[in-house]
Design a protein around this nucleic acid. Structure first.
Length: 809
RNA sequence: GCUCGGGUGGUGAAACCGGUAGACACAAGGGACUUAAAAUCCCUCGGGGGCAACCCCAUGCGGGUUCGAGUCCCGCCCCGAGCACCA
């Protein structure tokens, strides 16, 4: 009988479905383990090998945990709302409501072919009214908690996608989706107060009882939240106090001018008649500038003088007030004290406009008068100069002393600032859940009552966005006009839909509850299964999706809906799959479609190959040639299963080396799977197989263990071998092999011999042999004699069972 | 510029806490079987020297610590990712 994946793979996929092998009892499971992978967006192209890699890596872990006796829930679903789906629909001229079900069907076929341990009885799509009804419910919870608000403001507008983008969706001034330059627009938008949670989002990252995440991911989140400590300082002006934020209160004596953002509300009042024309012209130019040239354009400093002066609270000096677009209204207070001596941007500005530059910090070898030819931006180890009574203090002490001095006189206070902005969730598009709000002339914005959810997304023939800044939904007049839920008077629906990231911020909860009609999630099941035990996904979502999910969990927790405030206990980001050294992309035409590889090699070989490529968290290079190795491995193991018939421990004297290898492999594979070290786990299995072949051993007990250990990687293969071994249950109901620690290491070891630190040879000795015994063997060894003869042994370093280093003169 | 990763054979990569560098696999070359090819099996496979036993060199570069460094420290170079006129 030869190994024929093309028949056994569909067979086991069918049997799993029939026997409901992958459907744990959500209400009664005793050792629940929630194994989550990031659900895909069902594109028209189908799954590519990168998705395949991610899902396989997660599935291997889920299957491993199952074999270790857990009740593993491994759901899969579809993130089918959003601009990506809508844009594709626009491109091909088909309604997304027609396109998406087709794509989901294709994805389902591919995901089945992958052989994942998916519980299809709890699948979901975010576009299903039974799903987005509860997405809207979540919006309402935030609204009631005072965490959702509407405000007009400058927002990022993509003229190509014709919608507002969250700050997180703008990359260097360009739309992350289509690459078009983003413009500023003033629109009314819904926001979530994620900034209220900034401190908590940051602190939880350091709490090991709540989070065990890849370091790269927590770092990215930390950077994004961007906490900085400093002070707010009030400068007196003719138009009243002007508050600035600074991280460097220690440099206050060096503030020689002020700079306000052009949009700052005090600019009008501070502008003198003489300067009015210049200032107005500058403000107009700044407003007209799109975000790109303002934020990432050439960094040449521009600005205008307002004609007014502010008083430096610490020394009473009158310093000129300027406006410049390098100061951003969204950060801090929209105003800065400029310290050209110790900030490079302020330095450039001062140089350009001939403003004075004062040194207030001196490094080693410098004095208060040493001239500055660029800003000195050191932050520690030096001392303050030209700073009145604070002279001589270190930067840290001086800063603290100045803040204390200001606080005493109520001229300022120490504060913390975040880079994080509130989350703009409005989208002027069609393909998303309508935001459940009705505007009434008498009652204002009124939330749609929970009993009236979902607010169904209406059928719309022409769903193209336009340039008006108003969602296409406004064009559906019957839908648009709705009675006010409070007073019954004719009102108007909110026509924006919510951001796709709101859909994915809570889907893990819905998986547990797809059969529950009257609640967003089943409370007992959530208590039993959540938070998610292991979450695996791409680093491209390390920021937005994970941050938003965390935020939503915190709000729901604080509202009493959840018993946890961090949704994902353990998160690991997998690496990227590239193709022959290059990133895969449609334009290069090098996107690998798994279908053809499954047809040619079988999915178990493909899975094994992908996991063997390199460390799972680093990704790997997909080269067609590499598939041969894993396939050979499976075939050899297949043959070994056949040969194991009747070979039982009782009748066979096992080779000692084989026993050691067997136990050592069980230990190594177990430990490697725990840490997602899939490539080395597979290598260990290959080594054991090689040992068995070399010693002509097909002992049944060992073969059985190998079949179980290979099962997470090659599930169909393992099921078939398990059945060939005579079992009529699923291999995934078997117990994971255990090992005897004493048998994982040989009783005789090869000890490396170094002479003066250079490895020269090895000697054999019993485990735990003393230094004297080993040294004697070294002295007796013929090949080592030439290094020792006529030399005096000065020192011996002995690492038991590993190495001996003899130092001679 | 700042913050994380990373740099090891022809290739993908291993290497516990500082202890025999290159496991495992691919590719390549040689051989066996075959009329032939494929498949399979066996051998070689970091560089240099030597008939051989062995010897020298070698983990991006330059230093250092150590009996011993791919691993630790200092200073560079390069690649990838994230953030970036954030005060």
């Amino acid at each position: 009988m030869t190994y024929a994946p093309e028949t056994i793979e569909p067979k086991w996929q069918r049997l799993w479905a029939e026997r409901r092998t992958n459907e744990p009892d959500l209400d009664r499971a005793e050792r629940p383990f929630f194994n989550l992978m990031m659900f895909p967006y069902p594109s028209a192209e189908g799954l590519h090998v990168g998705n395949f890699y991610a899902f396989t890596g997660s599935d291997v872990y889920g299957r491993f945990m199952r074999l270790r006796g857990h009740d593993v829930f491994e759901p899969i679903g579809f993130d089918a709302f959003g601009i990506h789906s809508e844009n594709y629909a626009l491109k091909v001229g088909t309604h997304p409501g027609v396109l998406i079900p087709k794509n989901i069907k294709n994805f389902t076929r591919q995901l089945t072919a992958l052989g994942g341990m998916f519980d299809w009885s709890h699948s979901l799509s975010t576009t299903d009214p039974d799903y987005y009804r509860w997405t809207q419910w979540i919006f309402l919870q935030l609204f009631h908690a005072g965490k959702a608000y509407k405000k007009a403001g400058a927002v990022n507008w993509c003229p190509n996608c014709k919608t507002v983008l969250a700050n997180e969706q703008v990359e260097g001034g360009f739309c992350e989706r289509c690459g078009t330059a983003v413009e500023q627009r003033f629109l009314e938008q819904w926001f979530f107060r994620i900034t209220d949670y900034a401190e908590r989002l940051l602190n939880n990252l350091d709490d090991p009882t709540k989070m065990d995440w890849s370091a790269t991911t927590t770092t990215a989140q930390r950077n994004w939240i961007g906490r900085s400590t400093g002070a707010e300082i009030n400068f007196a002006t003719e138009a009243g106090p002007l508050t600035v934020f600074t991280t460097r209160p220690d440099t206050l004596f060096g503030a020689t001018f002020m700079v306000l953002a052009p949009e700052h509300p005090l600019v009008d009042a501070l502008t003198t008649d003489a300067e009015r024309a210049t200032v107005d012209a500058y403000r107009k130019a700044a407003a007209a500038k799109d975000v790109v040239s303002r934020k990432v354009g050439d960094k040449d400093k521009t600005g205008a003088f307002t004609g007014s002066y502010a008083t430096n609270p610490v020394n009473g000096q009158a310093i000129p007030i300027w406006i410049a677009d390098y100061v951003l209204m969204e950060y801090g207070t929209g105003a800065i004290m400029a310290v050209p001596g110790h900030d490079q941007r302020d330095f450039e500005f001062a140089r350009k406009f001939g403003l004075s530059i004062v040194r207030v910090i001196a490094s080693e070898g410098e004095t208060a008068d040493t001239p500055l030819d660029e800003a000195l931006t050191v932050t520690d180890g030096t001392r303050l100069v030209n700073s009145g009574s604070f002279d001589g203090k270190s930067i840290a002490d001086g800063g603290a002393a100045i803040v204390a001095w200001l606080e005493e006189r109520q001229l300022g206070k120490g504060v913390v600032n975040f880079r994080l902005h509130d989350w703009c969730i409005s989208r002027q598009r069609y393909w998303g859940p309508p935001i459940p709000i009705i505007y009434c002339d008498d009652c204002g914005p009124v939330p749609v009552p929970e009993k009236d959810l979902p607010v169904l997304l209406p059928e719309l023939e022409d769903f193209r966005p336009d340039d008006s800044g108003v969602s296409p939904l406004a064009r559906h007049k019957e839908w648009y006009h709705a009675p006010c839920p409070t007073c019954g008077k004719e009102g108007r629906r909110e026509t924006d839909v919510s951001d796709v990231f709101l859909d994915s911020a809570w889907y893990y909860l819905r998986y547990l509850s797809t059969d529950v009609a009257d609640k967003p999630f089943h409370p007992e099941r959530v208590r039993r299964w959540a938070p998610v035990a292991t979450y695996i996904g791409g680093n491209e979502h390390a920021l937005l999706h994970l941050l938003y999910s965390r935020f939503i969990a915190m709000v729901l927790h604080d509202q009493g809906f959840l018993h946890f405030d961090e949704p994902f206990r353990r998160f690991r980001a997998h690496g990227l799959i590239i193709k022959e050294g290059a990133k895969m992309s449609k334009s290069k035409g090098n996107v690998v479609n798994p279908d053809e590889y499954i047809a040619k090699w079988g999915v178990d070989t493909l899975r094994l190959f992908l996991m063997f490529l390199g460390p799972f968290e680093e990704g790997g290079d997909f080269r067609d040639a590499g598939l041969a190795g894993p396939r050979r491995f499976l075939e050899r193991l297949w043959d070994l299963v056949g040969q194991s018939e009747g070979k039982t421990l009782a009748g066979v004297e096992l080779h000692h080396d084989v026993v050691i290898k067997w136990h050592a492999t069980k230990k190594k594979v177990t430990q490697d799977l725990e840490t997602l070290g899939y490539n080395t786990a597979i290598a260990a299995l290959m080594e054991l197989l090689n040992t068995l072949r070399e010693t002509n051993c097909s002992e049944r007990q060992i073969v059985k263990d190998m079949v179980i250990m290979v099962a997470p990687f090659a599930p169909h293969f393992a099921e078939e071998c398990w059945s060939r071994l005579g079992y009529d249950t699923s291999v995934f109901d078997a117990a994971w092999p255990t090992w005897e620690e004493a048998l994982t290491i040989d009783s005789v070891v090869a000890i490396a011999v170094q002479i003066n630190g250079k490895t020269r040879s090895t000697v054999r000795a019993g485990r735990g042999a003393s230094q004297d015994v080993v040294l004697q063997r070294v002295k007796n060894d013929d090949t080592l004699k030439k290094f020792l003869e006529g030399k005096e042994v000065k020192k011996v370093i002995y690492v038991p069972d590993r190495l001996i280093n003899v130092v001679v003169t």
